[in-house]
Amino acid sequence: MVFLGIVLAAAAVAVGVGIVTENSSSASLSIFGHHVPGVHTGAQVFIVGGIVSAFVVVGLAVSLLSLLRSMRVRRELHDLRDEREESMSALVTKNQQLERELARTRSGAGSASAAGQVPVTAQQGRVTEPASQFFDQSV
């Protein structure tokens, strides 16, 4: 899109330069050696100049908008990459922490039980009720 806008603006500037350099009188209009039909008065030449300048403005606006969009996309991509790097480093840190905890648990649990089970302390005086009546039924 940037290229299209630049090409459109350059073409409009070339046409404007051609109009200025080829015209010796204000009532006729010729571009690059060819007479433009239907343009015979100074007002019509002025209108054609306005149209050419409008194409220049449109071409530059298309280029600018396209450039701004590509900059925004590039910035968003950069932010996403930074966010990904931060989350990956947080995950690596959390993984290392969990590995250390697992190693500590394994070293402490090996002396507690030969089967590798961690002993559970029972709370006395507490009545446990099943979560559902279906757990009390025998099969």
Results as ranks from 00 to 15, higher is better:
G16Y: 02
L98D: 10
T105Q: 10
D79C: 04
L67R: 11
R81V: 14
R104H: 12
F32N: 06
H78F: 09
V56S: 11
R75S: 14
H40M: 07
P130L: 08
S26N: 04
V45D: 01
G18S: 15
M88L: 14
V58K: 00
H78C: 10
G110I: 02
E101V: 02
H40Q: 12
V7T: 09
F32S: 07
G50H: 00
E85M: 10
Q133V: 07
H35P: 01
R81D: 15
F46G: 10
S66Y: 00
T93V: 08
V17L: 09
I6R: 10
G116W: 06
H34I: 12
S138T: 10
Q133C: 00
N95A: 15
F3T: 15
T41P: 03
V13W: 04
H34S: 10
G116Y: 05
V17P: 00
G49V: 04
N95Y: 04
F46S: 14
L91N: 06
V13D: 06
L4M: 07
G110C: 03
V92D: 08
Q117F: 07
E101G: 00
G5L: 04
I47C: 00
V56H: 05
L91V: 11
D136L: 11
E99H: 03
Q137R: 13
F3R: 15
A109Q: 09
H35S: 13
V15P: 02
G33A: 08
M71G: 06
Q133D: 09
V48C: 05
V62M: 08
E22A: 14
A131Q: 07
S24E: 08
F32C: 03
M71F: 05
T93C: 03
V120Q: 12
R106A: 07
G110Y: 04
R84G: 10
G38N: 13
L60Q: 05
Q44A: 06
S63W: 01
S89E: 14
F134W: 07
P37A: 13
S111L: 11
R106S: 09
R100P: 01
V36L: 05
S30I: 00
A12T: 04
V2I: 15
S70E: 13
G59S: 02
R69V: 11
A114I: 02
P130T: 09
R69T: 14
E129K: 11
V118R: 09
H78M: 06
V73A: 08
A103W: 02
S107T: 12
T21S: 07
R75T: 15
A12I: 02
E129C: 00
R69S: 13
